[in-house]
Amino acid sequence: MPLFREGSATPVVNDGPVPMPLAEWFKDRSSTAVALANTDDVTSLQPRLAGLALITLHFPKFSDGRAYSQARILRERLGYRGELRATGGVLQDQLPFLLRCGFDSFESDQKGFGEALLKARTLFSVVYQPTEDGRPTVSQLRLQHRSVTLSAAQ
């Protein structure tokens, strides 16, 4: 399936390491890439995260949202900084959510996916939830705005 990365409207070449299923990877760890099912416990990777360049999280169907939680735990709690890929064929309408949870590459065969990816981060200019993407939330902006107006008033 075509692979997309942020910044490109056209599919990119998939020339990275080949991800191994989690159980196999635990046995030999010869690859720097691992493929998780959405029932796998991501915290089991914790001691070995530094050696990983790619983790793929799977969406068996786009309505199955378990991988969003896996992604946030990897990024926010375990501090994983390598590539995080959504596999299984995702749709452009999921992109704002995927990006906010820390995914940065995507398998999709949907027409128009690449163009949508270019726009996905700006589709919503405000967010309410703090996540690893570091975007200031509405509450944070309000507090800032408040302290700016307060200090201007002094």
């Binding site: 786009f62 309505s63 199955d64 949202g65 969003y68 939680s69 946030r72 704002p96 959510f97 995927l98 906010r100 949870c101 919503f124 967010v127 309410y128 939830q129 996540t131 509405v138 509450s139």
Partner: peptide, 13 residues
Amino acid sequence: RQWSTLHPEFSFL
């Protein structure tokens, strides 16, 4: 309401 609106993790429960 604000927290749950377009929550990135919990839109496909």
